[in-house]
């Protein structure tokens, strides 16, 4: 459906289009991270493209790959009725240098998506007007959706009561029957002091 979009991108950007594939009728192109904004501007403004709606912007962590992260946008053209998914790869093994240009100038709705992507994966969007955490609190260290964030690490804002303080066991095993509740919710989680 969007084959002509892929062709147009290849004709315009040549080697900056690293690869492309289609799955279930949805086309994906992977572009050079340095050409991110240029490609986005072309897709938004070219009269044959007219991608006027940004459906989604997110990132995926592939710890075994280099560059490690994929930043993904899903675009839809309301007037022309075609859609495309564009990806760019950024970041080294440690997740450093995961930087890419912001597209908030083109689609204002990208603002919160980019903040969320920064919050969860630590992708820095250069030129973003207000790149702060959006869901988590400013005291939070690290980026929870990176695969190297320990799954059991919590960072409480309010220090937990201890059993001595409460005067009773806080692990509510005893009054539940063995077959009730969820055992994994009761395991001891390592906590770090709020800074």
């Amino acid at each position: 459906m969007s084959a002509k979009v892929v062709d147009a991108l290849k004709a315009t950007f040549g080697a900056a289009i690293l690869e492309n594939h289609a799955h279930c009728g949805d086309d994906t192109v992977v572009v050079e991270a340095s050409k991110w904004l240029e490609v986005a501007t072309f897709l938004k403004n070219d009269p044959a493209m007219k991608f006027d709606m940004l459906s989604d912007l997110c990132a995926v962590d592939y710890p075994d790959r280099l560059p490690r992260f994929e930043v993904v946008i899903h675009l839809y053209s309301i007037s022309l009725g075609h859609r495309i998914r564009v990806k760019a790869r950024v970041g080294d093994e440690e997740g450093d240098g995961a930087e890419i240009a912001t597209v908030t100038e083109l689609w204002p709705g990208a603002n919160w998506f980019e903040r969320e992507t920064y919050d969860m994966n630590g992708i820095v969007f250069q030129g973003h007007p207000d790149l702060r955490r959006i869901l988590l609190y400013p005291e939070f260290e690290g980026f929870p959706l990176r695969k190297d964030y320990p799954a059991a690490r919590t960072q409480p804002l309010v220090a937990y009561r201890t059993e001595a303080e409460a005067g009773l066991p806080l692990e509510k095993l005893a009054p539940f029957r063995e077959d009730e509740g969820m055992a994994f919710g009761r395991r001891e989680l390592p906590t770090s002091e709020p800074s």
């Binding site: 929870p144 919590t154 969820m182 994994f184 919710g185």
Partner: peptide, 8 residues
């Protein structure tokens, strides 16, 4: 007890 949300 947090239910099935056993996360950050």
């Amino acid at each position: 007890c947090g239910g099935f949300y056993d996360n950050y």
